[in-house]
Design a protein around this nucleic acid. Structure first.
Lengths: 111, 111
DNA sequence: TTGACACATACCCATATGGGAATATGATTG
DNA sequence: CAATCATATTCCCATATGGGTATGTGTCAA
C-alpha cells in the first residue's frame, strides 16, 4: 500500500505546509483564490489543487461571487487534530509539570 | 516535487494513523518493539520502520536493554502541531464562541 | 559454538504526490 | 458574439511511501 491520500483526513491534508499557509491566510477572513495566489507566491493551479484537498476534508467552504470563488475557513475540521494532540500537552507544558509536582507531593503526604 | 518526506516534521510523521497509534501506546509508558507489534497487530518490520520515522522527527527516544530496545514517547515533538492547531480552537469551541459574544457586547456598549 | 530471540535493514512494487505547463470552464464586459 | 478575467482540470514526471518478504545484526542461553 502507498501513503494514505492527502484527502483521507485533516491530518494528511494539513501535513503539507502550503495548505497550512492557506488556512492561516483564510483565518483572516473569506478570500478569493487570487489573493491566496499572491499571499503564497505560488502558481494559481497549485493553489486551486491545494484548495481542492482542503475542501475534500472539509477544512474550507466555497461560495460563488461573480467570477470569483470565495473560500472560507471551516476550522471545525481541525478539531480531531487538536483533540488528539491535546492529550500530549502535559509532556511539554510547564503548567502541567507543575501540576504533576503538586499531585506527587499530595500523594507523598498521604503516605 | 513529490510529497514531503514523512520524516520532514511531526506533521508529516503523525499523518500516518499507525504512527499515532504507536504514540498512543507509548503514552502508557516505555515499551519494547514486540509489545507494539502485538498492540498494533502489524508485522514487526513495519513497526520498526514506523519507529524509525518517529525517531527521526524526535517523537520517540530509544534505549537498549539487553536484546530489547525500549522506546519512550517524547511528546515535546508534538508541540508545533499543538501550537498551530490551537489557534483555531475558537472556531469550534463553544467557550470561545461565548467569549466572542461577550467581547462583541462590550464593543457595542462602548459605542 | 550453536540456537533462539529481538530488532533493524534491504529489496520489490503499486500508488499518490506536488509542481510545471497547457488547456478547459464559467462569468463578465464590450 | 468575442475577448477577458478568475478559477478548475488535465497531463507529465521524479519521488517517497507503506506493506510484504527476506535477510542482517546483536544479545542471551545452553
Amino acid at each position: 500500500m502507498a501513503r494514505a491520500a492527502t484527502t483521507t483526513d485533516a491530518f494528511n491534508a494539513v501535513a503539507e505546509p502550503r495548505r497550512r499557509q492557506i488556512i492561516d491566510v483564510l483565518a483572516g477572513g473569506e478570500c478569493p483564490v487570487n489573493d491566496l495566489v499572491d499571499a503564497l507566491g505560488l502558481a494559481q493551479p497549485q493553489v486551486s489543487k491545494h484548495l481542492r484537498v482542503l475542501r475534500e476534508v472539509g477544512a474550507v467552504d466555497v461560495r460563488n461571487d461573480g467570477r470569483q470563488r470565495l473560500y472560507r475557513l471551516n476550522g471545525h475540521a481541525l478539531k480531531p487534530i487538536h483533540d488528539w494532540v491535546k492529550q500530549y500537552e502535559r509532556t511539554w507544558s510547564e503548567r502541567f509539570e507543575a501540576l504533576d509536582d503538586v499531585l506527587e507531593e499530595l500523594t507523598e503526604e498521604e503516605n
